[in-house]
Amino acid sequence: MDKLLSIVIPSYNAEKFLDNVLGELVKCHNLNRLDIMVINDGSTDQTAEIGQKYQDSYPGSVRLISKENGGYGSTINTGIAQANGRYFKVVDADDWLDSKNLDRFVGLLKRTETDLILTPFWAFNDKNHHKHIPEIKPDDISWGQKYYLKEQGICPVPSMHTYTLRTKLLQENEIQLDEHAYYVDIEYILYPIPYVKTFEFVNIPLYNYRVNQDNQSISMTNMRKNQQQHSLVVDHVNSYIKEHADGLNPNQQELMVNRLSRMIATQLKIIDLAPIQMATKHELSSFYRKVKDKYYFEPKDINLPMRWLIKSRFNLFPVIHYLAILKMQLVHY
């Protein structure tokens, strides 16, 4: 029987969570229509053994694919290359999908050919176990209706947790993410967009996204530590937009520029998290001069504190520094 959905689980030292995500997936009544790939990225714990256990128990639906360590992007690249399902979704090993809604979603996939399907997700607070569904659908879009991207835009673009893409779109256009790098989820969101013709928002919450973890790449400490990697992805996304600019329709370009602009705002915030000294102000000014002249950047697409920072010629950087810290301490979806 044809597989309808390939689910890639990037797994590096994921023994703590892997039973949870796989245990939920194998509850699906449509398990025989799923192609579940545990991509073991050179783990040194029991990740491979857990993956092998599920492959042995569900040989027609679960595959363990072990490879040398190459980072998050490399696991997705491997998944794209080896996917057998008509559609493709990434589920991080520390997150999980709702099995009941997954059955409903697989039923939908039997009768659609839409390039990009966007579904709500739960934000699950790892500290207090509260969860809620953030709003993902713009007001000018209806649930369950197929749109053509050349006629209807998506602004702002939703997160990676909402994404399900047609596998052939990824494979035929050779979508590849950076390896040995953080923040490549933005590449996964944006790199398919030049090839997306149709999209649909479907009101079937699927993804449970675990937030407020100390080791997340969006935590304050990790953002500072990985500043250069974030900057690298900003550079690569900008180059990708430039490379494809001639073939983009206005809605595709607006979507990609909007997301890149918000990445640039994040890079400004990361810089501003440095100690309050003149060297930080000079770094902010230098980075902004570069993006203002050479990057696809729209200040209207970024948040108000970052616009204040720019308009003040970075004289407000101490104020924004403390605001950014306060927000990161208090806001977890």
Results as ranks from 00 to 15, higher is better:
residue 141 I to A: 15
residue 201 F to M: 13
residue 310 I to D: 11
residue 301 D to Q: 13
residue 22 L to T: 10
residue 19 D to K: 11
residue 120 P to N: 04
residue 98 D to G: 10
residue 250 P to H: 10
residue 90 V to N: 00
residue 180 H to L: 13
residue 193 I to K: 00
residue 318 P to S: 04
residue 192 P to I: 08
residue 287 F to R: 01
residue 199 F to D: 01
residue 288 Y to P: 05
residue 274 A to F: 10
residue 182 Y to R: 12
residue 26 V to A: 02
residue 136 I to W: 15
residue 133 I to H: 06
residue 285 S to D: 13
residue 331 V to Y: 06
residue 280 T to F: 04
residue 43 S to D: 13
residue 54 Y to E: 08
residue 260 L to I: 03
residue 41 D to I: 09
residue 174 E to R: 12
residue 95 D to F: 00
residue 92 D to G: 09
residue 328 M to N: 05
residue 35 D to Y: 01
residue 258 N to M: 06
residue 37 M to E: 07
residue 267 Q to V: 01
residue 52 Q to D: 02
residue 311 K to T: 08
residue 259 R to F: 09
residue 297 F to I: 08
residue 294 K to E: 15
residue 175 I to N: 05
residue 131 K to P: 02
residue 313 R to N: 14
residue 264 I to L: 00
residue 96 W to D: 10
residue 76 I to H: 02
residue 33 R to A: 10
residue 243 E to L: 15
residue 75 T to Q: 05
residue 217 S to L: 11
residue 154 I to H: 00
residue 211 V to I: 14
residue 172 E to A: 13
residue 1 M to T: 10
residue 255 L to F: 03
residue 67 K to Y: 00
residue 77 N to I: 11
residue 216 Q to L: 00
residue 308 W to Q: 08
residue 28 C to W: 04
residue 249 N to V: 03
residue 260 L to Q: 00
residue 90 V to F: 06
residue 68 E to Y: 08
residue 180 H to V: 05
residue 17 F to P: 05
residue 207 Y to H: 08
residue 57 S to P: 03
residue 236 H to A: 05
residue 260 L to K: 01
residue 182 Y to N: 11
residue 289 R to L: 11
residue 302 I to Q: 11
residue 133 I to A: 10
residue 107 G to E: 15
residue 86 R to C: 04
residue 212 N to I: 12
residue 150 K to R: 14
residue 85 G to A: 09
residue 310 I to F: 07
residue 182 Y to G: 06
residue 76 I to E: 01
residue 207 Y to F: 09
residue 182 Y to I: 09
residue 38 V to G: 01
residue 153 G to R: 05
residue 108 L to M: 14
residue 303 N to K: 06
residue 305 P to I: 12
residue 42 G to M: 04
residue 119 T to I: 05
residue 194 P to I: 01
residue 70 G to H: 00
residue 148 Y to D: 10
residue 109 L to P: 00
residue 257 V to D: 03
residue 54 Y to P: 05
residue 46 Q to K: 12
residue 133 I to K: 07
residue 245 A to Q: 05
residue 19 D to P: 03
residue 120 P to G: 09
residue 158 P to S: 04
residue 106 V to M: 07
residue 35 D to P: 02
residue 11 S to L: 02
residue 209 Y to M: 08
residue 87 Y to C: 10
residue 162 T to G: 08
residue 194 P to V: 00
residue 224 R to D: 07
residue 282 H to G: 07
residue 53 K to R: 14
residue 237 V to M: 12
residue 163 Y to M: 15
residue 77 N to P: 11
residue 281 K to I: 06
residue 82 Q to D: 07
residue 128 N to C: 04
residue 242 K to W: 05
residue 147 Y to K: 07
residue 243 E to H: 07
residue 199 F to T: 06
residue 200 E to L: 14
residue 174 E to W: 04
residue 63 R to Q: 11
residue 119 T to S: 08
residue 59 P to D: 04
residue 231 S to I: 10
residue 324 A to K: 04
residue 131 K to H: 12
residue 39 I to F: 02
residue 35 D to S: 02
residue 286 S to M: 00
residue 217 S to T: 14
residue 243 E to N: 15
residue 65 I to Q: 08
residue 25 L to A: 09
residue 313 R to C: 03
residue 304 L to H: 13
residue 211 V to W: 06
residue 216 Q to F: 06
residue 103 D to Y: 09
residue 75 T to G: 02
residue 84 N to S: 10
residue 79 G to Q: 07
residue 146 K to E: 15
residue 146 K to S: 12
residue 257 V to R: 01
residue 154 I to G: 04
residue 111 R to V: 07
residue 287 F to L: 05
residue 243 E to C: 04
residue 203 N to K: 14
residue 269 K to F: 13
